[in-house]
Simulated scan of single mutants.
Amino acid sequence: MEIVQQIINGISLGSIYALIALGYTMVYGIIKLINFAHGDVFMVGAFVGFYSITVMGLSFFPALLLAMTICAVFGVLIERIAYKPLRNATRIAALITAIGVSLFIEYGTIYVRGAQPEAYPADVLPSKSFEILGVTINSQSILILGVSVALMIILQFIVHKTKTGKAMRAVSYDAEAARLMGINVDNTISATFAIGSALAGAAGVIFGIYYVKIEPLMGIIPGLKAFVAAVLGGIGIIPGAMVGGLVLGVVESLVSAVGYSLWRDGVAFVVLILILIFKPSGLFGKNIREKV
């Protein structure tokens, strides 16, 4: 029963990784860029949610929607200011810029509000525990999983059923051909950043509710783990990011349960190394030969 308990905890944690990983995988799928500033958008979302609840007095769902909206705008600004001028630059230039943007957001936040951590109020989501077949399930875990799954379903609907989603898939497949067909590629890329950043903002608020403590450098490790989750599932593949996040969360929880809690952060990178050695395309990816 202890293992079942840890798997449930892992699914809650994994759903947070999955929400962040979706942003990585969407952006990579369209412009082949690893947006290392994405973990910091997650951090901004956590702080927007915190101030929405403590200063503005909002409840969980309005705070979640506000954080998603502000992070969506923030994501578009990052794309337009930092990445758009480098659209035709080398991959390494865009990658270095992404790392620079990440550091700018982290230390800009510290400059504006200081480095001290904050704690989400305990009464935002009243926590109740249910015992089912000897397994204790927290109401917060159920809500976190429910919100995460709902957001993932909405994302799938947007990608497969809306005009913006069709444009995103077309640009991902061939940006030049999409442009010739009358699709506004720049707006489509901005929409991708907006959606991915909104999901990261939601993950930030959910993380704050679940783990209570937030601070300006909190996006580094979850951001890297979400990147591992995206690679694990097959970067550029949306269902892969979801499954990768959940698998990584469960693996971490099981490692902690066995008594190696000090190794839980390292496990993500062991998983990354193994995936790169044995299945570089990820669980859902296909090996595609690239013309040189």
Rank of each mutant, 00 (worst) to 15 (best):
K163Y: 09
Q116C: 01
E118I: 03
F207D: 00
M152N: 00
L232N: 01
T136Y: 11
V135K: 06
L217Y: 04
L232Y: 04
T188Y: 06
V231E: 02
Y120T: 09
Q156N: 10
L232A: 10
E176G: 08
V212D: 01
S197P: 04
A167C: 12
L155D: 02
T136P: 00
T192Y: 06
P222W: 05
P222G: 08
G196E: 00
S129Q: 12
G204Q: 11
N138V: 10
A203K: 04
M218F: 06
T192F: 04
L180F: 14
Y120H: 04
I214M: 08
L145G: 12
G134C: 14
T188D: 05
V212F: 05
K128F: 14
F130L: 15
D186E: 14
D123F: 15
V231F: 01
N187Y: 06
V212G: 00
A167K: 00
V149F: 15
T136M: 05
I153G: 05
G219Q: 10
I154Y: 03
G201A: 09
M218C: 06
G146A: 14
N184E: 13
S139N: 11
I214N: 04
F130I: 15
Y210L: 13
A177R: 09
A175D: 07
E176P: 03
F130K: 04
N138R: 13
N187S: 13
S141D: 14
F193V: 00
G204S: 11
F130R: 05
S172T: 05
V205K: 05
P117D: 14
V149P: 06
F157Q: 08
K161H: 02
I220F: 14
P216W: 07
G134V: 12
A150F: 15
E215L: 09
F157N: 01
L217E: 10
A150M: 14
L133R: 09
S172M: 11
I183D: 07
L151D: 04
L133D: 12
N138D: 15
F207I: 06
T136G: 05
